[in-house]
């Protein structure tokens, strides 16, 4: 499979009054055509910043580190959309309204935002908002755009006569579907879905996820699925990347990450998750809480909460180890722990 997106050594830091927040530090990711990558982690681990960083839709105090690369279809989006910061050495500032980046946003990389409930503007009709997105990028008449919207509504399963409704007239599930329709509007190659089903009921969640898989297969779209829910990625993703405190700690196929776990944090995450299958086991909570990213611990960022931590973990940042082809773990003892860890 051909690589669609390659994120190399991406670091996004936020400038705050007290210094820097190291939200994302040295993340490497690849997404192939038509593939789903699940990005999991707790809140504040940098998964959303990583996802939004791809299209550089970040707040104005976000700076991308000089050596970061986001290669999409052979072009480096970091070079395209940022310029070296005059104020902070080694950082690049994101340019607002960069015309080159706008060609990529939504047309090639679209997004499904967290909380579809609030992603639509409440004073415009839903259909008009989708039409606006189409007209901003494509040279067509409003009538043609409306046809496209009708087609999209059929695709995601909303009746055509709801195009002229306002967002408050939609149920939660329908808003989410409309959001998916909007993400599909310009035939993108990549969709970044940020917690697409978190606020929905299980039955609706199940249906929306099913729909996303179906559409993705049909339209051959790659997807980055950002979620905190381990069970959702287990069902949806081909590949999984686990993030903790701004670092990518483990990466591999879904099966590798779940069955041949090679990082203590992944193990802890799996053990903290209740399941409706199998025997009832006592969950293991992870002691402590995630570190403050303005002041991350020296060495491994998970070390203070890790049951396997040794002295070296508190001193040195662990290297990324390739445990088996395509399966990476950022842990000093990845090789020793490989095979010992498990979500059971």
């Amino acid at each position: 499979m051909k690589k669609l997106l390659e994120v190399k050594n991406l670091s996004v830091h936020y400038k705050i009054q007290a210094g820097w927040v190291y939200a994302v530090d040295g993340v490497n990711l690849e997404v192939n055509h038509g593939e789903t990558l699940g990005l999991v982690g707790e809140s504040g681990c940098g998964k959303t910043t990583t996802g939004y960083g791809v299209t550089q839709l970040l707040p104005s105090n976000a700076y991308i580190k000089e050596e970061s690369k986001i290669i999409f279809e052979g072009k480096d989006l970091v070079k395209l959309g940022t310029h070296p910061s005059k104020k902070y050495e080694g950082y690049r500032k994101i340019e607002e309204y960069n015309p080159e980046m706008r060609k990529y946003r939504w047309a090639k990389i679209s997004m499904i935002f967290q909380g579809a409930m609030n992603a639509f503007n409440p004073v415009y009709k839903v259909g008009d908002q989708i039409i606006e997105a189409i007209l901003a990028h494509e040279n067509m008449t409003k009538q043609e755009a409306l046809k496209r919207v009708e087609e999209l509504y059929r695709l995601v399963g909303i009746p055509k006569d709801r195009i002229n409704n306002y967002p408050h007239e939609y149920s939660g599930g329908m808003k989410q579907r409309a959001m998916i329709a909007m993400a599909l509007a310009l035939n993108p190659d990549l969709i970044i879905a940020d917690e697409p089903t978190t606020a929905l009921d299980v039955v609706t969640q199940d249906r929306i996820l099913g729909e996303m898989v179906r559409l993705q297969k049909r339209e051959k779209i790659a997807m980055i699925l950002i979620t905190h829910d381990v069970s959702v990625v287990a069902e949806m993703a081909h590949k999984i990347a686990v993030m903790y405190a701004g670092n990518l700690v483990e990466k591999g196929t879904a099966k590798e990450v779940f069955k041949e776990t090679a990082h203590p944090y992944t193990e802890a995450l799996l053990n903290a998750f209740p399941s409706i299958k199998g025997e009832k086991k006592r969950l293991k909570a992870i002691p402590g809480s995630p570190p403050d990213l303005a002041n991350p611990p020296k060495g491994c960022r998970f070390a203070p909460r890790c049951p396997y931590a040794k002295d070296i973990c508190l001193e040195q940042e662990p290297p990324v180890v390739e445990i088996s082809p395509g399966h990476y773990s950022k842990c000093h003892f990845a090789e020793e722990l490989y095979g010992e860890l498990g979500g059971e």
Binding site: V203, D206, S231, A234, E235, F258, F273
Partner: peptide
């Protein structure tokens, strides 16, 4: 229906719907 819709944290689990 409710229980079959619950995602399971196991990539090998076959999802009945």
């Amino acid at each position: 229906a409710l229980i079959s819709a619950v995602p399971v944290p196991d990539p090998e689990h076959k999802h009945g719907r």
